[in-house]
Each structure stands twice: as C-alpha cells, then as structure tokens.
C-alpha cells in the first residue's frame, strides 16, 4: 500500500488531491507574490509555476472585474494535452494544479474546496501569533 504523509502536512494535502482526483498530475502551492511554498511536482519547475500563478490569478481577477462576470472562482487553462488550474487559497496563497487530458474536472471542482480549506488551515498557523 502507498505511504501517504499525514493530511495535516501541506505535502500530504497536495498528494491526497492527486490521489482523489483522476488526472491531477502535479501541484504547486505559492504565495500571492509568486514565491514557492511547497510543490508536489515532477516535471514542472515549481519556482516558475509559482511566479506565473501569481501573474495568472492577478490578470484573471482584473479580467473578471473588467468584464463584470462576478468574483473569480478559478482559472482553468485548457491546453492541447492537459489542463492548468489556478485557485486562490485564502488571501495569501495560490494553488496551481496541472492535470492531463483526461482530468476529471467535475471531481476536481467537487474536491478542491475541501483541499483549499485544509491548506488554508495549515497556512493560518503562519500568522497565528
């Protein structure tokens, strides 16, 4: 059986997301100013993804604002052979998820709020004192 880090660790939360949602292959948690926090990565360069996540979410928020379509939920980039999704984790962090062509988007949207909530809880300890 696979050895999974405890769910209260950030790595454990990211690994658990990969195991619960079919098609999730890598994920990167970063700060809103584009710095890497932790990554469950394989082929991507986590620092680059962290930097681009900040830009992606920033630009997309402005786009949502400008076009008047309500608050931004998540950014989904559908590509030739996969997906990249960026979601905000509270006010200070971002989660970027790379998925393959068969990513179960419905399952991702079902599972991601809980994942974001778990990440948020762990990150809250950073400013608790």
């Amino acid at each position: 059986m696979s050895e999974i880090p405890p769910p209260e660790s950030l790595n454990g939360i990211l690994t658990s997301l990969r195991e619960r949602v079919m098609g999730v292959s890598e994920s990167v948690l970063s700060t809103v100013d584009g710095l890497l926090v932790v990554a469950d990565s394989d082929t991507v360069h986590p620092e680059s993804v962290a930097a681009l996540a900040a830009a992606t979410l920033g630009v997309s928020r402005r786009m949502a604002d400008t076009t008047g379509v309500g608050a931004l939920r998540e950014v989904v980039a559908r590509c030739g052979s996969g997906h990249v999704i960026v979601v905000a984790v509270g006010d200070r962090a971002l989660l970027t998820v790379k998925g393959d062509d068969g990513l179960d988007l419905a399952a991702f949207q079902r599972e991601s709020p809980a994942t974001v909530e778990q990440l948020n809880k762990v990150l809250a300890s950073d400013v608790a004192h």
Partner: peptide, 14 residues
C-alpha cells in the same frame, strides 16, 4: 511503490 515526500516549507506569513 510510492515515496513519501518530506514536508519542509517556508512560511507564507507576510
């Protein structure tokens, strides 16, 4: 097999 990833990370506090 799977490998367990280490969990060390920087703080996200301002």
């Amino acid at each position: 097999d799977t490998r367990a990833a280490p969990d060390s990370r920087p703080s996200t506090a301002p």
